[in-house]
């Protein structure tokens, strides 16, 4: 087996979760890499939608921004941003939404707004963007985030978008009918919500990673499922396609 980086394992593990008939709301960065890797391997007909309004887009290189010309050039159609958020997202037509964040808690609530107090932030982050409504309007949510004690925290400084709120049925009690985060894919493991408590628990560990490593990189006491799988290592094909995609992207962004 070829050598690979933990972030490559993370992208590949996320890509594998996507199916050919999925309709997916894609964010920039890791989600975009995972979604396009799925499209270029096992899910050639997956529908990828970016919030810039590009529906069913098939970029040859990864976009740097959410609205690069490449996305529009290769889309089935491009709609306005109000239409995107009203008809397509709020209208309930998106099956899977991808999110990430600066901080996550054990119920997969996310913070992308501030580190520290809102009025006097230590770090002012970009903010919510599409996330608050993606989190509640998509059929289900996949989250991709590299693990670390500063990002996997006991308590968020700010709740930008909700996951399973305070666990149990607290999400439904807010009137939200969608599933919320069903998978959290990290550079060490895959988490999924416990059916009752809705706390994100480890269901699969990437090859060579230990339970101790996962705990050391998580700010709450981690729970493990009764049966924890080992994530299958990346195949040569998955690695080739992903690396070629990144190489193409880097060449394109250096030229332009």
């Amino acid at each position: 087996m070829a050598d690979y980086k933990p972030t490559e394992m993370m992208t590949i593990a996320a890509a594998r979760l996507l199916k050919n008939d999925d309709i997916c709301f894609v964010g920039i960065g890791q989600p975009s890499a995972a979604c396009n890797l799925a499209r270029l391997t096992h899910a050639p007909e997956i529908t990828l939608i970016y919030e810039s309004g590009t529906l069913a887009t098939k970029p040859t290189v990864l976009p740097l921004s959410i609205g690069d010309g490449e996305l529009c050039d290769t889309a089935l159609t491009t709609v306005s941003v109000p239409e995107m958020f009203r008809y397509w997202l709020q209208g309930g037509r998106i099956k899977v939404g991808f999110l990430g964040g600066a901080q996550i808690d054990k119920f997969a609530n996310l913070n992308t707004t501030v580190v520290g107090p809102y009025d006097k932030p230590k770090v002012r982050l970009p903010g919510g963007g599409g996330a608050p409504e993606i989190a509640t309007s998509c059929g289900e949510i996949f989250i991709i985030m590299a693990q670390g004690k500063r990002s996997f925290v006991e308590k968020l400084d700010f709740v930008t978008s909700i996951g399973h709120v305070s666990g149990g049925d607290s999400r439904q009690k807010l009137g939200v009918k969608t599933k919320g985060p069903t998978k959290l894919i990290t550079d060490l493991a895959v988490f999924a919500p416990d059916p009752q408590t809705k706390e994100m628990i480890v269901v699969s560990i990437h090859p060579g990673v230990t339970r101790e490593q996962i705990q050391e990189n998580t700010g709450w006491p981690v729970k493990f499922a009764a049966k924890v799988d080992e994530t299958p290592a990346p195949t040569a094909k998955e690695l080739d396609v992903l690396r070629e995609l990144h190489a193409r992207t880097n060449r394109a962004h250096a030229a332009a």
Binding site: Q90, P132, R171, G175
Partner: peptide, 21 residues
Amino acid sequence: YEAGASGLPCAIFRGYIGGDL
């Protein structure tokens, strides 16, 4: 913006559920 273009005083939508904004 859409409400502004439509001459409406406010926009109504399904959103801002549960978060801190």
